[in-house]
Amino acid sequence: MSVTYDVTRSSQAARIAAGLGAVILLLLIAAPWWAGRAELRLIGEICLFLSLASLWNLMAGYAGLVSVGQQAYVGFGGYMLFALTIFGGLHPLAAIALAGVLGALVSVPVAALIFRLRGAYFAIGTWVMAEVFRLSFAQVSALGGGSGTSLPTDIVRSLAEGRAAREALAYWLALAASVLVVASVYLFLRSRRGLALTAIRDNELAAASLGIDIWRTKFVVYVVTSALTAMVGALIFLQKLRISPDAAFSVNDWTAFVIFIVVIGGIGTIEGPIIGTLLFFALRETLADLGTTYLLVLGSVAIVVMLKAPKGVWGLIRSRFDLELFPLGFRVRRTDQKGA
């Protein structure tokens, strides 16, 4: 009897997960027909937070860029949606796409500045940049200055006829964004550039001496993340229909919660942000009535997870069951053959 090994990237669990994921996705696409208004809004919000968390995870968990200033791009994207539709006369969908392009453009000089900083200084630098964004937009009186502005009704109407159709469209856009973000993060990490990114995270010096341009790899990740974050920001404020500097550049909503999601889910994994988002919303929906106690509970959960399971809930599951739902690596399967 000879033993042969068979190398595969896929696994039983991954195939089941993919099948299950497809079913869930179909159910979610059909949600406007089976869910109520409040549920639709909630699922849409979950999708947008999942997108933000996956993007932050790519940046912090894989590229090692621990930013606490991603609210800069959420707010920027939101304001671009309002500015481009109100003053530029663009269709909201075109404005969302353009918000992404502009987010990428504005992130280039920001990266040139903050990439000079390392570690904690980098984190603080990103926060300072986000504050600069907030204060700058608060100065624009055409967009309501410090008190903000609402999306005019004719622009909202241009999206679709009737409130139900508009809400369904906003929901589908949020769902599409989360699928697009998770899929692109997955495909990016499977690519050669993704391999380089993992190498940089593991050992920067060794990666550099193998010919990997660290600065450029991180730069590409930062710009792409910023562009997608700006698009998600535009979608968030398309749902809210109202924007103000404090809401748009809220470090609590768009960064603290996002970091919470990634940390409790499991940083540096694709599954982590998904599980983290579900846990975060489960906590929020059950505890929201408690007021500030809710934030205390969130804080305690974060501390307990960081102490007891530093790799997050997904890290815990993976170490127990050797699961990988989004297979990035390869695995060896033993196949026994009779004879010879």
Partner: peptide
């Protein structure tokens, strides 16, 4: 040695061929 701990042996080698 400075290998990349989260990569497999083959992936470590592939990284080397990246130039």
């Amino acid at each position: 040695r400075q290998l990349f701990p989260s990569l497999s042996v083959e992936e470590n080698l592939i990284i080397g061929g990246r130039v």
